[in-house]
Design a protein around this nucleic acid. Structure first.
Lengths: 299, 299
DNA sequence: CGTTCTTACGTGTGTCGTAACGATC
DNA sequence: GATCGTTACGACACACGTAAGAACG
């Protein structure tokens, strides 16, 4: 069995079972890939593909199992070359992080700035996505690490590091009646049109659950993936905003009033995750440390 | 990077950094292995070995990291060929289990018998060892599955299935004074010389802890790895035995008296474990099912 | 002086690319 | 007939084994 054969297998599956496209992706010609696949089948002694005539259209049972192990082997192989690179050019390479808007906009800037100063030769990429997408990106090795609050919880193939906890603030235009209410309760919040994060982002799931648990139904008139958008609509007078504490910037948001409402909702934990078994390069480790330092300042 | 190179790396480490012995193990000549190692180093671009002159004597930092990933790649490779074999000759192969004496002697016989009838073409190997050794054997792929009570708990690379719970019985020669004591307490047990399992075997650890927790120090005059030996010395009048319930055989042990003492000690859980990510062949799965059925009859 | 690894070289296997053929939509 | 995969063949590379040489104890 050769790694090349496994690469062809994986490429085939990842390119809709088109041998030609797989070959193109691998910078090979079709016959080469065909041969890889056939010789893989013959060394294993069992068919791996479902065929319609000559065309490959799917995996057999055996093929699917082989695929799983093949992916994991190739990931290990990638880790090995990463070890090499790490010792050859310690401070050169790419750091691909996946994160949500909230992190990218309010938490990461100072960390990234520090990091880029320390490692000017490292290309930093920030990929955005929903938490669910981020998990998938990390597992498919499209990013090196994922940072987010939801969905990242307990995937068995991910190593997750809790970084900091946060809660929510209410924001409103000065003079808004909600600002005179004491104490602010879940019930009070339900009296006003609310603007907050969309489902799946930045703790929205547990926010909704908190209301649901006591049988309340807040009037969320608008939801957005990020606090900037939420603030904009709050400024426009469309309602009361609920955003993460750390998304409120004293200087830039001086035209908005803010009240902490941490007593109403569970604390959220933002986590950093990367695939177990994956080799984390030193500068990537360094980034993680920087992020955790920043996190300590927040939490 | 080639799998052959990784095999050479692993063989080298597993054979005391002797290239010749590694080559012999791999059915290759030395120069071939030397070349594997050198070309691996050169493709990774960084030294993997500590050298004394020409002699390889250890791994560098990078080498150690590469080794870890290499082992795991080769394990995956083995899984892939196992998938193949499983589809080619479903009912032929080897089932290597590692277990302790207690399991091998009192629990497994009926399971193994059933299994051998169902799969006459499968060679069943029973390797014995201490629980700690068994865990290591499973991780090093020297056995396919490990069955034991201690130490198997929470190794992150092992998948463990709880199978049945058990507790202990006291055994003594007929007429022994302990048999007239009611109720039997931990204190009562401390009045007599005890014979039980050695540390690390068959729940001995938690047995000792139970005594220690209430400040008692039982007089263990003799300890053995298995119940057969314990019974022998009980018969010889050396003391009172404490063994697993299931190690008492009504017919063969009719010359001994038995009292359940499950109320004194925590219940133990016997588990079956194998490395995560490892492909488990169908007949191995079948064995696991048979074992669990047997386990249900016990627990 | 034996052991151990390296270097040098020849041979055979195998992998890839080109090119022509066959099938399927 | 255009696309897609297979078969056939040749060139090149490479990995292994043999044999001889160098360092180490």
């Amino acid at each position: 069995m050769h790694l090349r054969q496994l690469r062809s297998l994986v490429a085939l599956v990842d390119h809709g079972f088109s041998v030609s496209r797989a070959a193109e992706y691998l910078h090979l010609v079709q016959p080469a890939v065909s041969q890889h696949l056939r010789s893989l089948e013959s060394t294993l002694g069992t068919p791996l593909f479902q065929r319609h005539g000559k065309r490959l259209v799917g995996l057999t049972d055996a093929g699917a199992q082989v695929l799983r192990h093949a992916r994991s082997m190739l990931a290990e192989a990638a880790s090995i070359v990463a070890v090499g690179r790490d010792h050859v050019e310690e401070a050169r390479g790419v750091l691909r992080m996946g994160t949500t808007h909230t992190q990218a906009r309010y938490v990461l800037p100072s960390v990234v700035q520090q990091f880029c100063t320390a490692y000017p030769e490292v290309e930093v990429q920030i990929h955005q996505g929903t938490p669910a997408e981020l998990v998938e990106m990390a597992l498919a090795d499209r990013v090196d690490l994922a940072i987010c609050t939801e969905a990242i919880g307990e995937h068995p193939a991910l190593l997750t590091l809790p970084c900091y906890r946060w809660n929510r603030s209410l924001i409103a235009t000065p003079g808004h009646p909600v600002l005179h209410r004491r104490p602010i309760s879940l019930g009070v919040l339900c009296e006003y049109p609310l603007i907050t994060y969309v489902a799946g982002f930045t703790g929205r799931t547990s926010l909704s659950q908190t209301f649901a648990k006591v049988g309340l139904h807040p009037k969320v008139v608008l939801s957005a993936a990020d606090a900037d958008v939420i603030k904009t609509y709050v400024r426009a007078g469309m309602g009361v905003g609920i955003i993460a504490d750390l998304a409120f910037e004293e200087d830039l948001d001086a035209d908005l009033e803010r009240r902490s409402i941490s007593h109403l909702f569970p604390w959220e934990v933002t986590r950093l995750a990367y695939p177990k078994n994956k080799y984390v390069r030193r500068f990537q480790q360094r980034f993680i440390e920087l992020f955790q330092q920043q996190a300590n300042r927040i939490g």
